[in-house]
Amino acid sequence: MTIERFTDETLMAYADGELDAETARAVAAAEAADGAVARRIALFHGTRAALSEARDARPAPEVPDALVARVRETLEQAGAGGEEPGRVVPLVRRAPSRPWVPVAVAASLALAVGLGAGLSLRPATGPDIDLATGPQPGATGLAALEASGVAGALSRLASGGSEQVAAGEVTIIASFRTPEGTLCREFELATGSAETVAVACAEGAAWDLRFAVASGRADGAGYAPAGALEALDTWLSGIGAGAPLPEDEERAALGRLAE
């Protein structure tokens, strides 16, 4: 009898009960006849058992009441508004006064929200603000997206892409649409001293900065304000931002911008 050689994937699938009956019989025969095969199968059994035990040692923690309440609220709102069968219910907007929004953290961020035509990234001022961890006034070079070269990167790069422009290094995080259908892009700008996470939305062929917040020191040595992403998340929920666009849709949307 010749013993087939099986790949690790097949032996693992055997241990996990994921093989078809015929292959499983062949592996079982090899397991019985060949100690090396049997040991390899035991390895996969062993890792599975260790991982199961680890999982059971830490049972799923109880879901916080606040989360359950939020979920129930979401379901109720959808239930009240979703009477037509087959209709896709729009994303439910999260309540603006969510308790988890860390007010103190938000206040300590150098938070600048540029609305409408306001293009300057202007750190808020006040006694609580530690400018050492945020962008220095004027230091980000994001005074205008066009002049800084950021706009070009926004029009060119796919999500995940980075490019060195006049203002610093731009990394595109994601693209999404507002409820009105406007294309927006979330990106990071790392200058010599600071890092900013921002959102710009397309205005014709130009880009309009809508949101910017200091997210940390670019050199990695500084303290990264933990609330920066939460602030962004809150803002995104507030404007009803859609889910990130898949790659192909993003490419098509950017292509249309160029026309």
């Binding site: 939020r70 979920v71 979401t74 959808a78 729009p90 994303l91």
Partner: peptide, 8 residues
């Protein structure tokens, strides 16, 4: 959950 409800 919100996305799941929207896409149910």
């Amino acid at each position: 959950v919100e996305r799941a409800v929207a896409a149910r």
